[in-house]
Each structure stands twice: as C-alpha cells, then as structure tokens.
C-alpha cells in the first residue's frame, strides 16, 4: 500500500524551486526596495504649522539660507530660527495675514512654533552641519534645491551608504566656500582640478571609521 500518493514525488522539487526561485528573490526585492530610506524617507513632506514657502523666500526673494538658519556655520544643527527672526520682515510685510496667525501668537506669547522636522538621521548617528559647510559642501548636495520647493521635502536618503559615497569621493560635492548656500551654483569644466586643490588646501580627509559618526 502506498502511503504517499504519486504527486508527492514532485513536492521537494516544487518547494526548492518555489523557495529559491520565487519566495527568495521576491523577499530580497521587497526588502531591498521597500526597507531602504530611498523608499521610506525620501519624499517625506509634512504639513507645517505655517505654510512657509521656501521657493518664495529662498528662491524668488533670494534670502540667504543663513539669514534664518544662522547657526549652520558654527553648530551641529543648522537651527530653525526663533520666531523673532520672521518678525524682522513680517512686522512690516503681511502683518495681518491669517496664514501668519501662528507666528504672531508665537511671538506674543513666547511660545515656540511646532515646526515638523523633516531631515532626521537615526539617533545613533551624529551629523555636524558646521564641519560640512566649512569643508565646502553645498546645502543643495544633501537637501536638494530648496529654493524651488514650495513645501520642503526630503530629497536624499540620508542613509549610511549615501554618506559614505561622498566620504569616499568628496570632490564632486565640493565647491568654493562662499558658494555653499548658492542653490544654483554649477561646477565648471575644471572642477576636478579645483576640487582637488580645495581638498588639499583644507586638508580634507573625510573619515570612514565607525566612530566618526557613531559614538
């Protein structure tokens, strides 16, 4: 008497092919595609308490990034400006705009505005804006062209592989240090030579050791 019917002869083969041919590759694909910050984080575009328009302020009005993000050259954080900085202009311009009610309330009652943080590296990674700005890495390299974003979104994955790509080959992202906040600066044909010169002039040796970013 046969315990197993005839078709069970094919089970091991089907399982093997199914696992290595279908389940394995598709799981690999799904994890590779959907678990990456390229998918999870890029494009994060939260609704802010005030519909602040970077395309207007940084683009059309050409206000330098550092007018508001004033600590970027000296501190690890670029800093979101205190509401008082907005009032430098908005005590004169659009004084009664309903969109700025949150701002006026913040200034009058000394309460911070709950801006939503967009670019958030994992808490075990310690990024320092000042050192990158001083090295001549443009804002646009990590943040995308903010001057064209009406609502800011995350443009780059900020993943470790992405950081290391630049740490291993920083030259393409270097620029003259007075052009760091310029969103439209383009490297010229002689960029490779210039970048190498800037690199040796500043003694740039981007670290690749774990403890450079993780402590």
């Amino acid at each position: 008497m046969q315990i197993f019917p005839h078709w069970t002869n094919r089970v091991p083969v089907v399982l093997l092919i199914g696992f290595f041919g279908v389940v394995g590759p598709s799981t690999t694909f799904l994890v590779w595609y959907y678990f990456s910050p390229e998918f999870t984080d890029v494009g994060y575009q939260p609704t802010q308490p005030i519909p602040y328009d970077h395309a207007l302020h940084a683009g059309e009005l050409a206000i330098d990034c550092r007018y508001c993000h004033a600590q970027v050259e000296v501190s690890a954080v670029a800093s979101v400006p205190p509401s008082k900085v907005c009032m430098n202009c908005h005590s004169l311009v659009k004084r009664d705009s309903p969109q700025l009610a949150v701002l006026r309330d913040s200034v009058a009652n000394n309460r911070p505005i709950r801006w939503v943080r967009i670019h958030n590296v994992p808490d075990y990674a310690y990024f320092d804006h000042s050192v990158h700005v001083r090295a001549g890495v443009g804002c646009v390299s990590c943040h995308g062209n903010i001057a064209e974003m009406v609502v800011v979104q995350q443009a780059e994955p900020l993943s470790m592989a992405w950081c290391l790509d630049c740490h291993r080959n920083p030259e393409p992202h270097l620029r003259p240090r007075d052009q760091v906040t310029n969103m439209t600066w383009q490297p010229g044909d002689d960029h490779a030579a210039l970048a190498a010169a800037w690199r040796s002039e500043l003694g740039l040796a981007p670290p690749e050791s774990c403890s450079a970013c993780h402590r």
Partner: peptide, 8 residues
C-alpha cells in the same frame, strides 16, 4: 521610491 507623503 521618491513620491511625496505628508506621513512620517
């Protein structure tokens, strides 16, 4: 990848 979303 890369499409925008307001959700964290």
């Amino acid at each position: 990848r890369g499409c925008t979303s307001p959700r964290p």
